[in-house]
C-alpha cells in the first residue's frame, strides 16, 4: 500500500464525518447525546512506543487512577478502541504500522499526541529515522507537551477530548485559528 498523506481521498484522512442515513437536526441531537456518552468512556488502544508509554502506564496506576474518569479500559486491539494515545517516538519503520493501527480503529476515533516526540519529533527531530510529528501521518486532536508529560498532563489531555466532544465548537476554534 502506498501511503500518500497529502491525498485527501486516502483512507482515514482528515474528515470525521460519520456515515449515517439520518440527516438534519435529529441526527445532530443523537450525535450530541452519543458524544456526551463517548466523552465519559473513551477506550484507548494499548499503544506504547517509548518512554512516554511508561508515564501512560503510571496514569493507569493506583496513584493517578485514570479510571476515575472512565478511561482505564486499555484495549489491546485497535478494533475495540476509539482513542489512540501516541506515546513515544514514531520512527520511519514504525510509521506505516501506526497508520495501519489507526485505520483499523472504528469511527469515531480520536488521536492524542503525547510528548514532544509525537508532537514534532521532540529531541530527535534532527535524526535520520524519526518522523517529525505524528500529525504528518494521522490527524491529531489533542497535543500534550512534555518529555515525558506527567500523568496528570495526560489525564488533562484526555479531558480536553471530552470537552471537545461536549462542545464541538471547540474543534472549530482550533481549525480556524
Amino acid at each position: 500500500m502506498e501511503l500518500n498523506h497529502n491525498d485527501p481521498s486516502a483512507p482515514g484522512h482528515g474528515s470525521k464525518e460519520p456515515t449515517t442515513l439520518i440527516k438534519g437536526p435529529l441526527h445532530d441531537g443523537i450525535e450530541a447525546v452519543l458524544d456526551f456518552c463517548r466523552g465519559n468512556s473513551l477506550w484507548p488502544v494499548t499503544f506504547g512506543l517509548a518512554c512516554c508509554a511508561i508515564e501512560m502506564m503510571s496514569a493507569g496506576g493506583a496513584r493517578y487512577d485514570l479510571s476515575r474518569f472512565g478511561y482505564e479500559v486499555f484495549r489491546p486491539s485497535p478494533r475495540q478502541a476509539d482513542l489512540m494515545i501516541v506515546a513515544g517516538t514514531v520512527t520511519d519503520k514504525m510509521a506505516p504500522l501506526l497508520k495501519t493501527i489507526y485505520d483499523q480503529m472504528p469511527e469515531p476515533k480520536y488521536v492524542l499526541a503525547m510528548g514532544g516526540c509525537a508532537i514534532c519529533g521532540g529531541p530527535f527531530t534532527d535524526s535520520y529515522s524519526v518522523v517529525q510529528g505524528v500529525d504528518t501521518i494521522v490527524p491529531v486532536d489533542v497535543y500534550v507537551p512534555g518529555c515525558p508529560p506527567r500523568p496528570e498532563a495526560l489525564i488533562d489531555g484526555i479531558l480536553k477530548i471530552r470537552a471537545m466532544l461536549r462542545h464541538p465548537e471547540l474543534r472549530e476554534v482550533r481549525f480556524n485559528a
Binding site: 500500500m1 502506498e2 501511503l3 500518500n4 498523506h5 497529502n6 520511519d92 519503520k93 510509521a95 506505516p96 504500522l97 495501519t100 534532527d126 535520520y128 518522523v131 517529525q132 510529528g133 504528518t136 501521518i137
Partner: peptide
C-alpha cells in the same frame, strides 16, 4: 560520509510498507 537525508515535515511518498517491515 553518510549524508543526512533531507527531511521535511511530510514523509516521502515512496514509503512502502512491505519494505519497511
Amino acid at each position: 560520509d553518510f549524508v543526512m537525508p533531507k527531511r521535511d515535515r511530510f514523509p516521502p511518498a515512496s514509503w512502502d510498507k512491505k519494505a519497511a517491515e
